[in-house]
């Protein structure tokens, strides 16, 4: 896979120019970012979160983060979970998961011990809480890489 086919660079629309040249010098990081995406969006051990649900949550986080180009890519993989990708959806049966994802992704500084104990009280296993945090945390990283790359591309235009 060329680094320009990785989600981050493709979503930012980067294949030539100064930003592309800079990305080439960090090809290992671009490839490792893609490997991390595979590990959180399509893991072998899914725990309580199917690949489709993971894609829907990533799309939701990317949309709320202000990076629609990334949200679109994840939405395409969300299958019958696609409705959850809309930041306006309250999540229905998964409301406790959605509420946590939104706070951890978009109001990180306000997270407190009660956010975790509420998930535990709702029957979410500790291993699944960690899986959910990795999904939120990775997507928060990737959307900011894409946002930054877009600004680099814009400045070179």
């Amino acid at each position: 896979m060329s680094i320009f086919q990785t989600t981050a660079l493709a979503a930012a629309g980067i294949d030539t120019g100064a930003a592309a040249d800079a990305a080439q010098t960090r090809a290992n990081i671009m490839n490792a970012t893609q490997a991390a995406e595979d590990a959180v969006i399509a893991p072998l051990y899914t725990g309580a979160f199917s690949h489709e649900l993971r894609a829907a949550l990533a799309a939701r986080i990317a949309a709320a983060g202000g990076v629609p180009e990334l949200a679109e890519r994840y939405l395409a993989k969300a299958g019958d979970m696609a409705a959850l990708a809309d930041p306006a959806s309250d999540g229905g049966d998964l409301a406790h998961i959605i509420a946590f994802v939104d706070r951890a992704a978009n109001a990180t500084k306000d997270i407190a011990a009660s956010d975790i104990s509420d998930l535990q009280a709702a029957g979410v296993a500790d291993a699944d809480i960690v899986r959910l945090c990795e999904l939120v945390a990775f997507t928060a990283y990737q959307l900011r890489v894409v946002a930054g790359l877009k600004l680099m591309k814009g400045a070179a235009a």
Binding site: A18, A19, D21, A22, A23, T25, R26, I29, A104, A105, T108, K109, I111, A113, D115, I116, I129, V130, C133, E134, V136, A137, F138, A140, Y141, Q142, R144, V145, G148, L149, M152
Partner: peptide, 27 residues
């Protein structure tokens, strides 16, 4: 430089990740 700006984007974004593990999963 372009390379420095990319490294800044990456290191800042990486802590968007690390913070959401450290600050969310523990005290």
């Amino acid at each position: 430089s372009e390379e420095e700006i990319l490294d800044l984007i990456l290191s800042t974004a990486l802590f968007g990740w690390a913070n959401r593990l450290m600050h969310v999963l523990g005290d």
